[in-house]
Structures are given as C-alpha cells and as structure tokens.
Nucleic acid binder design. Sequence first.
RNA 1: UCCUCCUUAGCUCAGUUGGUUAGAGCAUCUGACUGUUAAUCAGAGGGUCGUUGGUUCAAGUCCAACAGGGGGAGCCA
Length: 506
Amino acid sequence: MITNIKDLEQYEGKTVRLQGWVANKRTGKGLVFLVLRDGSGYCQCVVSEEQVSNETFETAKRATQESSLQLSGAVIKDERQVGGYEIQVQEINILQETVDYPISNKEHGVDFLIENRHLWLRSRKQWAIMRIRNSVKYAIYTFFHERGFIQIDSPIFTGNAAEGTTTLFETDYYGQPAYLAQTGQLYGEAAAMAHGKVYTFGPTFRAEKSKTRRHLSEFWMIEPEMAFYDLDMDMDLIEDFIRYIVTDTYKNCKQELEILERDTALFENIGKKFPRITYDEAVQILRGERDVNGKNSIETLRDDLNEIAQRIGDIKEEISTREATIQQAGVKAGVKNFNQAKVDNLKNELRDLEEKQRNIPQWIDSALNFTHGDDFGGSDETVITRLFNTPIMVYKWPAAIKAFYMKRDEQDSEYVKGVDCLAPEGFGEIVGGSQREEDIDLLLARIKEHQLPEEVFNWYIDLRRYGSVPHSGFGLGFERLIMWLTNVPHIRETIPFPRYYGRLFP
RNA sequence: UCCUCCUUAGCUCAGUUGGUUAGAGCAUCUGACUGUUAAUCAGAGGGUCGUUGGUUCAAGUCCAACAGGGGGAGCCA
C-alpha cells in the first residue's frame, strides 16, 4: 500500500511505502538525503549506508534530481523537517533515472522558467501557488453556494463586442465573425432575472498587446449579478466576499503561504471595515490635498525617494569596499568569490532601486497633476492604496470613463453608481462593479451615446422591457486575486499555463 | 502603437577608456566530509559573446539594421 506524504503523521514509528520524485539530494559520507515530493507534500528520506544493503545504497546515490522512485522506510518524528517527519529508508526502487533536469534549485530568469512551465509547475513555490488557486476556487463556490447564488455558465463565443472598447479575439463561426468572450456580465444579468442571485466563473479573453506583470490574454473571471440589489448592497457583498476569501485562505493554506513567505499583515487586518470613499475624495487623497490616517500621498512618495537615495549611497559604498578587498594581493579564492557574489547581488539591487528612483518622480508628477474626470492609472492606484492596510472601495465615478450600462447617480447625473475595490499595500484594482441601468429609455440613450450597435443588444434590452428591476453586480479577476493573496510579482505565475502576448507554448 | 532596458557556458550574471589565451557562482563529472536543509571544500570538462553588415592594425566592447525578450505607457481584470 502506498502512503501520501501529507498523511505521514498517522504512521509515526511504522513502516510506509512512498512514491514520488526527487526534489533535491544531498550526500554525506555514508549518508544520502533525498527530499521526496509526491504531490501531496515534501519529506526528507535518509539512506544510511550502515542500515541498508550495498545495492540499495548505490541506488540512492544514483537517484538524480527529478528521478521517479518508490521507497519504503520507517516514519520518524523530526521537528526540524518541513513536514515534521522524515523517513529512515529501507529499500529504494528507481522507476526512471532523470538526466540533466533543466531547472536547478538556484535562481533562473522568468523567460527560461516560462519556457519550461510544464516542469516549473513541479517547483515548490509553483506547487504552493497552484494549491492556493485551487483552495480559493473552492472557497468562491462555497461562499456563493452558502448565500443561495446559482452558478451560471456564460458562452465563450459571442456575436457582440460587449463594451466596445477592448480588442477581442476574432474567430470564424460557421462563416460569420464571432468573438471570444471578454465578459459574461450581460448573460449574468439575464440569468439574474431568472434566478435572483447568480454568478459566472469562467475564462475570458482580451486581445490587447499588453506586456506587463498584470495582464494575460486568457484569464478567469468571477461575475456575480443580483436582482433587487442597489450599489450599497453590492458593496456590502464585495466586502463580505473579499473578507471570506482572505480569511479562508489564511486558515486553509498555512503551509503554502509559509513556502511563499507571504507577509501576514494582510490577513491580520482583513477583519477591519473597508473604507468607502468617493472618486472625488480619492482624487483629493491622490493629489495630497487630504491625509489618510495621518499619511499624505505626496509626502510618503518623497520619503520613499529619500530612503531609496540613502540606500543607493550605502550600496555603492559597500560595493567599493568589497571590490577593494577583491583587488588586494594574496586574497584567498574563497574570500574573493564570496565578495564577488555579494557585489553581483548588490548591483542587481542597485539596478532595481535606480529604476524606482526614476519612476517615483513620475508618480509624484502624475499624482499632483491628476485631472479630475480622468481614470486612475496604475501608479495612481499604487499611490492611493499604499496609504491603507485594508482593501478600499472607491465609488461614484464620472460617467464619462465608465461603461454604458452603469446607472447614473440620482442626485448627480454626471456620475455613475460604480465601484472599484482596490487592494492595499499598493496592489490596486481587484474588483469592478456597479448598479446597472434598469430603465429601458435611459439604456437605449446610453447605447446611442457610446455609438454601440443596437441590434446586437436587442436581447439585453429585452431584460428592461419585461419586468425590469434594480440590479447590481461586480467582476473579479481571479488571477489578480491570486496574485494579491500570494504576493507573487508576476500574474503569469498564478495560472498553470499562461497565455499572453507572444506566448502560446507550452 | 510608443518609451526604456536587455541578449556572453546548461542556468544566473561580471567583463573598466577597444588591446595577449573569455571570467565567476550554480548545475554536471571526480574526490573529501556521520545529519545535510539552496550543505560545504578541492579539482575537471563546458564558449561561433543573438544575427548581419560597418569603423579599426585590433571589436564581447564602438556604429547601423534586423531578430528575440524584460519592464512600463495606453487599455484593462
């Protein structure tokens, strides 16, 4: 019988049989340490020359990184180990000896790793990220199921370019043009009129030639839609939803978050009420005209700049000291190499800092000169959310920069009842939502204003023709959410096989 | 589409104002070491410096074009 590594605690002191792959190997005299992974976890397996046959010991020495094997041995409790247990090996049987596995335990560049994504998924951090992705997906289903929502699938082939703004993938659909869906929202609205509360959760496609760490061509979206919900109810739901996901992840993915070295401040602050501010207030905060918790956006940025300049000075000094050491006559090879490695690392850090040093003045400039009525850019969102330690809700947006289906504010018709939820620590937008326009005449007027083809929206307009009700919803980018929770630097790491501009394989 | 940076060993990167035979760490192989956590130490092998053209006595280094990639803007989740 085969045991999973995650279940080892049930077998302390007993002999078990494991199967998996060699994640890492270290050797000592008369000893081989194999770190085995089996998909469920990691476990160090010790092969001692004194305790096994010569044949078994030779086999252990032959086991290279990523070789597949089966082994049996006794389960020993050992607090020092990652899973808390290790195996005293008795027998090993190699299934396949791996030669020249491309990914080592040392650092690699993003491009190389993406090229080897099919193998990279085996790595520890990637393993943790995919498990969190799975856990969050399950939590999303649970959250909505517990609240009486029905999960509804929207089509992937659509005939209309929904909001008319973004570039879509065009394809041939039995001789007529069709587009890969960029949102399921309009279909969600139709389903909400059938079920009351629904949500879609599926892949969406954008053909923008974006090359940034926040964009994918194919990504997953969660889009709830609720009949008889106004904007306030929508915001309440967003807040409950985000808090539920974050809390659930903290509770169920402890080991994974540890592997990823995720700062836990987010999880400790998530119980606090999310501040709700209007777009106008957000603009004041951005321009530095209004402080948040005693912090001013512009001053914070200037402090950052000073700190960076300070650090750059320190690094340059350390580099010249170490280089002087290397230059000295009669320096031992070990000392020389050690210092050279330090210098290389420092130079890398220096490059990152100098990039920031170039960027921050632009951020300050963008913040100070922000024009009321514009949409926030990436840096603006960073500047605002840096001042908060919980997600924030920005609502009441200028109508001109939002989609045609958003309902106008009754008191202030230049604004719409839309909301963006921005994640803290500088992360930026994760949710965009709104109350929808339910009046058929107003909706028709908006479609005209936005110069959208009315014919393709006929079915959508029907929803206002027959029993129209106030309703609201929001959209959440699944990968953005995972990126925020795991704090990985690049969205490409949050999906098993990323698709983005220029990338179709593996 | 625009701005910016990069391309040197299997991987990550040094390589100064152009100047002898191209440098390191990791990985691989050999050896040393009773317990390592990305182990460490000693040694060995491993290169058409992205491609093409130009300047020069001499090009990894300077210039041009092209290709590939990173980051960002726009757009967005």
